[in-house]
Simulated assay, not measured.
Amino acid sequence: MERGLSGREAVYVHVGGCWNAGKRSKGVTREQALHALAEGVKVCPQCEPDNALGFLD
């Protein structure tokens, strides 16, 4: 999960090891990632975590 400049809000969900994840990224559980996607956090267009997690919006 990549956080914004403030460190509070999530701005992108990435697959672990994504080359496009920024320095403000940290690992989260599968459940946390799915919750973030359900809440509308954007997916990384390069690694497509929604597909990897089987998330259907």
Rank of each mutant, 00 (worst) to 15 (best):
H14T: 04
V15T: 09
G16K: 13
G16M: 12
G17L: 01
G17M: 00
G17Q: 03
G17H: 02
G17Y: 02
G17R: 01
C18K: 02
W19R: 13
W19P: 12
W19F: 14
N20D: 15
N20L: 07
A21M: 11
G22I: 00
R24E: 13
R24G: 11
S25M: 06
S25T: 08
K26I: 00
K26P: 03
K26V: 06
G27Q: 14
G27N: 09
G27W: 11
G27V: 11
V28K: 06
V28H: 08
T29D: 08
T29F: 01
T29S: 15
T29N: 04
T29H: 01
T29L: 03
T29Y: 03
R30C: 02
E31N: 10
E31T: 10
E31H: 06
Q32F: 07
Q32N: 10
A33C: 04
A33W: 05
A33F: 08
L34Y: 05
L34G: 05
L34N: 02
L34F: 03
H35V: 14
H35K: 15
A36H: 06
A36D: 11
L37D: 04
A38P: 07
A38V: 07
E39C: 07
E39R: 09
E39F: 10
E39V: 02
E39Q: 09
G40Q: 03
V41K: 01
V41H: 05
K42E: 13
K42A: 15
V43E: 15
V43C: 10
C44R: 00
C44G: 04
C44A: 00
P45D: 07
P45E: 01
P45W: 02
Q46A: 15
C47L: 04
C47N: 04
E48G: 00
P49C: 05
P49S: 01
P49A: 04
D50P: 09
D50I: 02
D50F: 12
N51M: 07
N51T: 00
N51L: 06
N51Y: 10
N51I: 09
A52N: 08
L53V: 06
L53R: 03
L53P: 08
G54L: 06
G54C: 09
G54R: 02
G54D: 09
F55C: 10
F55K: 05
L56A: 14
L56G: 00
D57N: 07
D57R: 12
D57L: 03
D57P: 15
